[in-house]
Write a protein that binds this DNA or RNA. Structure first.
Lengths: 325, 325
DNA sequence: TTGGTCGAAG
DNA sequence: CTTCGACCAA
């Protein structure tokens, strides 16, 4: 059976908002490692891969692997019945043909119980090669969304060019052409060395409270041993954000602090690729999930757009348009 | 002739928003006791009953009973011409074939005068028996609205079950089933009791200007003689809300304070009834009128959904679906 | 609080 | 396809 407890319904809502337009149905693959969903978008152009790691649930139990075929529209509908701060518990017996969800208000004076019919979905499990990318850009997810929206007003596709100096997004269309150049944030450096995107421990005076309110209490360490030989010590710890990321830190993680998000570029090789803005804009909808997004690119290889948030990772893959340049 | 003065156009706007979708035309029955409107909804399924008591007008005069047949759509249109804080005066001579309305800005620097054509409406006066209900639930009107909206996403109808422990709303549909259980708020008890909410006179420093615009200054006393023998001590200052409904006070009042609204259940007998969510959702639109709503139920008897606000009471009646359970 | 935008319904 | 209502931002 499965029983997974999530502290904040809001995360799930944001996730669904982020992907439901791309994917209508998919299997929630529940294992003892967590819950994953992988699916091609409806027009089989983009690939969505979501991972929620078991350790980041408030509690998690999954006795045996079970793929739960869900309609994401239905799931969205039901999640709308939860308030943002509700605690959400997913429940499914081993032979389930429906997925149970319980929404509990923080004060425990309201309990919503919902049951959603499941469907059988033939899932071609797509192996995703662990590519080494020539360029990795980390930037504010809000800025990414803004750029996609702006350029989408001009043309159908965007050319993304990453060089040492910065990254340029450009688009052409009927009404005109446009491009946005983001310079790498000063102090940010490629390679391990400086990488740690400005981890200035910039503390707001009022940040104290927030620390309290957030869920990640000091005991962030317990599941911390989950880190094997990771070179980067800055797990997206959430509010713990500011600290950490001392050294290594090639790509910045999703820190949830209030600091500005810089632009960092890790570049093995210059890259220039063109993508459909329609899809990128869709990916950008995940911005509320994480303050940072990373774009991973190699020439002639699908782009990887990745959002790291506390509970896991959301990845989008999209093949470049051939008509590059 | 009729001359009735209302302090805040906003109340009237909210009222119209609340019922205009249910009822298109109706008689405003003006008597020396106040103004009442009673009408079946357009599909003759639900009954709407509005009462505005004479004492709660800023001033009220009605020499003889007169039913003013109005089209609520027209009335809504005209009321939109008033700003929320405007003082509204209804005027009609005895033989009126039109209803005059005057909107005066609080600062009295703007006066709008409107006249709306009246219509003749044959009114079957429906006697509403003063039923004793087996269950009376008082809860936050916003929460009621939320629940109706949530469950409406799942199915057409909702089953409401009231028991000592709480009240459960449940619905079934294509995508799945759902239920919301509200527990009775601790400390809430049947019988009178009644939570007195504080009426903090909370003043903002920058409220100076607004004070001009607002009508109710601290000196709440002027028209206070409107209050007869009232047992309830907690008059939610603010708009001077508290008067009205004097005795019995089984159900909490509409206070305008900022406190949380609890759930209280007065139960003679367990009740389980099923209703059309379409109608309940419509009723719930009255939420802006009052922070609390009370649901009155007896088996096989129409549900009464009641909103008490400063100027009066708005009631909705709806027969249960036969297919209960 | 008001105006504008977006989505849903007829 | 048009209109209305609900939601969101200024």
């Amino acid at each position: 059976m499965l029983e997974a407890r999530v502290k904040q319904a809001s995360v799930l809502k944001k996730l669904l908002d982020a992907i439901k337009e791309l994917v209508t149905d998919g299997n929630l693959d529940c294992t003892d490692e967590g819950i994953a969903l992988q699916a091609m978008d409806n027009s089989h152009v983009a690939l969505v891969s979501l991972k929620l790691v078991a350790e980041q649930f408030e509690s998690y139990r999954c006795d045996r692997n079970m793929p739960l075929g869900v309609n994401l529209g239905s799931l969205t509908k039901i999640l709308k019945c939860a308030k943002d701060n509700d605690v959400v518990t997913f429940k499914a017996p081993d032979d389930a043909d429906s997925l149970g969800m319980v929404f509990e208000s923080p004060k425990e004076d309201r309990v919503g119980e919902y049951e959603m019919k499941l469907m059988d979905i033939d899932q071609e499990h797509l192996g995703i090669p662990d590519t080494q990318y020539d360029a990795t850009i980390t930037m504010s997810s809000a800025e990414f969304q803004r750029i996609c929206r702006d350029l989408a007003a001009l043309g159908e596709s965007v050319k993304i060019e990453a060089s040492k100096e910065g990254v340029r997004f450009s688009s052409e269309g009927e009404v005109g052409n446009g491009s946005v150049l983001l310079k790498q944030t000063a102090g940010t450096d490629r390679s391990s060395g400086g990488g740690s995107k400005k981890a200035q421990v910039k503390r707001d005076p009022d940040e104290e409270d927030e620390e309290e309110e957030e869920e990640e209490k000091p005991e962030v360490d317990e599941d911390e041993e989950g880190e094997e030989e990771q070179d980067d010590e800055d797990r997206p710890k959430k509010r713990k954000a500011a600290n950490g990321k001392a050294k290594g830190a090639k790509k910045a993680k999703n820190t949830d602090s209030t600091d500005e998000v810089g632009v960092s570029i890790i570049l093995e090789k210059q890259v220039s690729l063109t993508f459909s803005l329609k899809y990128l804009s869709n990916f950008a909808k995940s911005a509320p999930l994480a303050r940072e997004v990373s774009l991973h690119m190699s020439n002639d290889v699908p782009l990887l757009v990745q959002f790291d948030f506390e509970q896991g990772t959301l990845q989008f893959f999209l093949a470049p348009k051939i008509s590059d340049e």
